[in-house]
Design a protein around this nucleic acid. Structure first.
Lengths: 194, 194
DNA sequence: GTCTATAGAGTGATAGAC
DNA sequence: GTCTATCACTCTATAGAC
């Protein structure tokens, strides 16, 4: 499984053959097919591994979504994204070819969006963010943040540049900046110092 | 050419065979191969058509990048994106398989980013946007806007939803909102009214 | 369970007649 | 220029021996 994820990350899902995977893990293709019904089953297993890890990360930050905890989970998320880059890079290709995967991921996405929105609401509650002034402004902000997180790696690959995860983090905080209260700015400053 | 773009949009580049294209435009595959050296050449031609159209749009708004002109070009851009959805949906796959295309598109991207930044600077100059208070805040904002524009269609496809281009436009304006001066808010209100 | 060998279905691209 | 026919190759998945 780790062998196939490695190859998917390096060459892209469609460019990895069953022969490649078998060779990588030092078994025959026949043997590989014995353990996984077809290529889709291998992908499914890789995705399950990934989804489990992601849920763990989301869960950790949801307990107390203050700036400090959020900030500490952002970098691990981008490292996670690199470890499963095959998915984020080929996400359109994969969801088109495997409708079941698409459905599962859509549900995952919904939870992700809602947890971002919950983090915003929590920090409005603590007085770190201004109450919503323009209707739906925070829904749009949550949507933007989600897009930045999910498509950060793709944009990097497309532009052919290598960026530190911290640049992603700073760009996202920059979106939140204008909504910080005086108290929020202080909390933010101490949160990112650590 | 339009026939191949249609098929690429519907099924994705990798899922369209030379036979499919030949059938779509009612010629033989042999004939198709006579006119285009290989599949990459067909893609190249499709991309050139697309790039030309995009440059026209960027040029139109660059002349006077006030809110009215920007706002009027945003919706056409998202319609353009639908017309060439094969590119935006398969962008990672395509740039990986065709390094020449990747290079060309990276230059295109650079121009796109710079023109967004120029629009921001222009509106700081007219007093519609506050001068930059936090260093690089506007570079990050430009980057975010670019990502929203380029990955809007992909995020729609991944989530399996259909959205109006106006939602994309509103989400982008929502990013700019916090930086509007009093004057800028008035200009914006009259600009979007038309 | 693991292997080798191969079936079976495609694909991109070319050869050669017209 | 346009066609038909086909080459050469690749891939997934299976059959059958061990």
């Amino acid at each position: 499984m780790l062998g196939s994820i490695k190859l998917f990350n390096e060459n892209g899902f469609v460019n990895v053959t069953l022969r490649d995977i078998a060779k990588e893990v030092s078994i025959s293709t026949g043997n590989l097919s014995y353990h996984y019904k077809n290529k889709g089953a291998i992908l499914q297993a890789a995705y399950q591994r990934m989804a489990q890890e992601l849920n763990g990360m989301l869960g950790a930050v949801q307990i107390i979504p203050n700036f400090k905890n959020i900030n500490e989970q952002v970098l691990p998320f981008f490292e996670f994204q690199v470890r499963y880059s095959f998915f984020y890079v080929d996400i359109l290709e994969l969801t088109r070819a495997y409708p079941d995967l698409a459905k599962t991921y859509q549900a995952q996405t919904q939870r992700f969006l809602e947890s971002i929105k919950a983090m915003i609401d929590y920090n409005v509650g603590t007085g770190n963010l201004f109450p919503e002034r323009i209707p739906q402004a925070y829904d749009k902000l949550a949507h933007t943040i989600w897009m930045m997180m999910v498509f950060w790696l793709p944009q990097q690959k497309v532009r052919g540049i290598v960026q530190d995860g911290r640049q992603a983090r700073d760009t996202i905080w920059n979106l939140i900046g204008p909504y910080l209260t005086e108290k929020g700015r202080n909390v933010y400053r101490t949160a990112i110092k650590a």
